[in-house]
Amino acid sequence: MSDPIIRIEGLDKIYAGKSGSGKEDVGSFQALRQVDLSIERGEIFALLGPNGAGKTTLISVVCGLASPTRGTVWVDGFDNVKQYRDARERIGLVPQELTNEAFETVWNTVSFSRGLFGKPPNPKHIERVLKSLTLWDKRHNRLMTLSGGMKRRVLIAKALSHEPRILFLDEPTAGVDVELRREMWEVVRELRDQGVTIILTTHYIEEAEEMADRIGVINNGEVILVEETNALIEKLGRKQLTLQLFDPLDSIPDSLATFELALSDTGEELIYSYESSSKQRDSSGISTLLRALEAAGIGVKDLHTRQSSLEDIFVDLVKERA
């Protein structure tokens, strides 16, 4: 594999113990602890974590909004502090909050962003970006007249105005309805197909599961896990088999005691939990279980399986560390 496009080494970030006005001491706060992380070229990387875990701080340090306390960030081989021009021109950032100049028009604010990032004007490119985000019809609208979803798109357009190689999306779909969320995923996939590396943070596990090639979990400022999405689900995932019975049971028969079984309250369902990862023949024990059921004379009406989602995995992980 080629060099990672972003390499973070030993990153610490401690916010000094000053309140907003700088007068009260609110105690210093360590937002990032010894973060080591590499982002590969062209991947979609999802950074997951509860509120206050350090997701936004990590992005802020990489993008230059906050200074690192210790450690180094390389962007495409450039130190993001010492060679900030080279590092930053490769990055587009879409912030979490909907912030923009209310009185500007869409076209002007996106063109402004391109200039700010040191690129000569290129109306063709701005047009392409606006069209791809279905903002073209709104180009002469003032930002304050746009809906929340449209404002979010404007922020994405601004971030793409200078043709970045890396795009950071800080909670891109927070407060966005389902339809728009789907559309945004589509936009992100298109960008990835164009070779843009994408790092997104999200609360929606579903989003990470659907979009990301790899997932990093961050909690209390530490990256506690980085794994390919599929591998993560497979590795940590447990499956459940639910068997609907012809006749309700009062209790689980002794002959089935060796299986990890639970009986539903009504006694009409048996729930069997098993690991889905093992490659061994019938390691799941489903066929053995079915044979045992038959031997015990229990009739099965219907069955279905459920794979634990990333959400379950995530909650387990965070709880374990807490």
């Binding site: 900030y84 590092a87 923009n100």
Partner: peptide, 16 residues
């Protein structure tokens, strides 16, 4: 004003 509205993020993240 950019500081107040939050749009200063762009200024700080720009290669300038």
């Amino acid at each position: 004003f950019p500081k107040f509205s939050g749009s200063i993020y762009e200024l700080l993240s720009a290669p300038i």
